[in-house]
Amino acid sequence: MFLGLDLGTSGLKALLVDDAENIIAESVAPLQVSRPHDGWVEQDPRDWFTACADAIAGLGVDLAAVQGIGLSGHMHGATLLDAAGTPLRPCMLWNDTRAAAQAAAMDADPLWRAVTGNIVFPGFTAPKVAWVRDHEPGIFARIDKVLLPKDALRFWLTGDPVSEMSDSAGTSWLDTGARDWSDALLERSGLTREQMPSLVEGSQVSGHLSGSIAAQLGLPAGI
């Protein structure tokens, strides 16, 4: 059996399939969105972890035969963690537009499009982190890792900060030609490569389920 987890904006969905891709069970745990100001759209990353546990429990079947987990989720969100792996603030989601000024400033620098192959949109991760640098410098100074929402969920499951290429291309920091983080663009953001997750292709193994989380979720450790 294989378990799929989809971190959506309004809910986290769990899908269990057999080796022939027949659906065995499915479950959804709802998520709430906070909009404290016009253009702001946020979620507490800790709610994702709770929703993940709830969705898996909602499958209502024995998970001892699960061989692997696949992840999908909404892109572009800025999940900022401290050195202990604790979220520093609510995650700014893909549809949060507060960083319009930061995005425009980045896009005015031709290096961003040349390296990333894309316009810098306000919803992308890099301008969101620039907004934090400009408006919440105390939080910015404590950033140990910048993760996308799906990758924050993976980090909770495995303890490994990892991302894959397609999601990372939506941060405005990925050198799409080199398939690697751009040190030049990170430097322009006041960040370093050490604050980024490692990169894998979407079909690669990206981590293994930790023993403590496996026990909590009723899944085999190490898958």
Rank of each mutant, 00 (worst) to 15 (best):
residue 149 P to N: 04
residue 123 G to Q: 10
residue 12 L to Y: 07
residue 170 G to M: 02
residue 50 T to E: 14
residue 88 L to H: 06
residue 148 L to M: 15
residue 122 P to H: 07
residue 27 S to L: 10
residue 216 Q to D: 13
residue 89 R to H: 08
residue 218 G to R: 13
residue 113 R to L: 10
residue 218 G to Q: 10
residue 189 S to C: 14
residue 92 M to V: 01
residue 157 L to W: 03
residue 80 L to Q: 05
residue 150 K to M: 06
residue 135 H to N: 15
residue 26 E to Q: 15
residue 131 W to A: 03
residue 114 A to T: 13
residue 112 W to G: 03
residue 154 R to F: 01
residue 79 T to K: 00
residue 219 L to Y: 11
residue 213 I to D: 00
residue 199 L to K: 14
residue 116 T to H: 06
residue 165 M to D: 06
residue 57 A to S: 13
residue 146 V to Q: 03
residue 78 A to F: 09
residue 157 L to M: 12
residue 176 T to M: 14
residue 216 Q to N: 06
residue 205 V to W: 07
residue 142 R to D: 07
residue 98 R to L: 09
residue 137 P to Y: 04
residue 137 P to T: 01
residue 4 G to N: 01
residue 180 D to V: 04
residue 162 V to H: 00
residue 63 L to E: 10
residue 176 T to K: 14
residue 49 F to S: 00
residue 135 H to P: 00
residue 115 V to F: 06
residue 121 F to N: 12
residue 198 S to I: 10
residue 182 S to C: 08
residue 195 Q to I: 03
residue 218 G to F: 12
residue 12 L to I: 10
residue 137 P to R: 04
residue 4 G to W: 02
residue 195 Q to G: 02
residue 84 A to M: 13
residue 82 D to W: 08
residue 202 G to K: 12
residue 21 E to G: 00
residue 15 L to V: 15
residue 86 T to A: 11
residue 90 P to V: 03
residue 113 R to W: 08
residue 196 M to Y: 13
residue 210 S to R: 15
residue 42 E to G: 01
residue 95 N to V: 08
residue 45 P to I: 06
residue 3 L to F: 09
residue 98 R to T: 05
residue 118 N to E: 07
residue 134 D to I: 04
residue 141 A to S: 12
residue 139 I to S: 00
residue 50 T to C: 05
residue 46 R to L: 15
residue 155 F to K: 01
residue 221 A to R: 12
residue 130 A to P: 02
residue 204 Q to K: 10
residue 178 A to T: 02
residue 2 F to S: 04
residue 37 H to M: 05
residue 48 W to N: 07
residue 17 V to W: 06
residue 144 D to V: 00
residue 17 V to G: 02
residue 161 P to L: 01
residue 7 L to T: 07
residue 130 A to R: 13
residue 36 P to R: 12
residue 53 A to T: 14
residue 70 G to R: 09
residue 84 A to K: 14
residue 73 G to C: 07
residue 213 I to N: 00
residue 222 G to R: 05
residue 76 H to K: 12
residue 127 P to S: 04
residue 130 A to L: 15
residue 14 A to E: 06
residue 23 I to V: 15
residue 146 V to K: 04
residue 142 R to I: 00
residue 156 W to F: 14
residue 79 T to W: 05
residue 190 G to I: 12
residue 36 P to Y: 13
residue 157 L to K: 01
residue 7 L to M: 09
residue 222 G to T: 02
residue 119 I to G: 00
